[in-house]
Amino acid sequence: MAKVKGTIVVDIEKCKGCEICISACPTSVISMSVEVNGKGYPYAYLNDPDGCTGCSNCAIVCPDGVITVYRKKIG
């Protein structure tokens, strides 16, 4: 079976740190940063690059649409 690997890019300055993407992620690979962005919000980031499958669940529940998803077949 071909494996798929994904990654996300978060628009850090637009993220408001609501954490809804964290509860939507089936593989629990998104975390909140310790540092904050220009507006003072912590922002989402991918903490485990190998765990992301590129399912886009985080992106479709993001209220501010800050997540862009990439996905690639491997092997």
């Binding site: 590129g54 800050v66 862009t68 990439y70 690639k72």
Partner: peptide
């Protein structure tokens, strides 16, 4: 080419 989702 790997893009699957971005803001409309």
């Amino acid at each position: 080419e790997n893009l699957v989702y971005q803001k409309t």
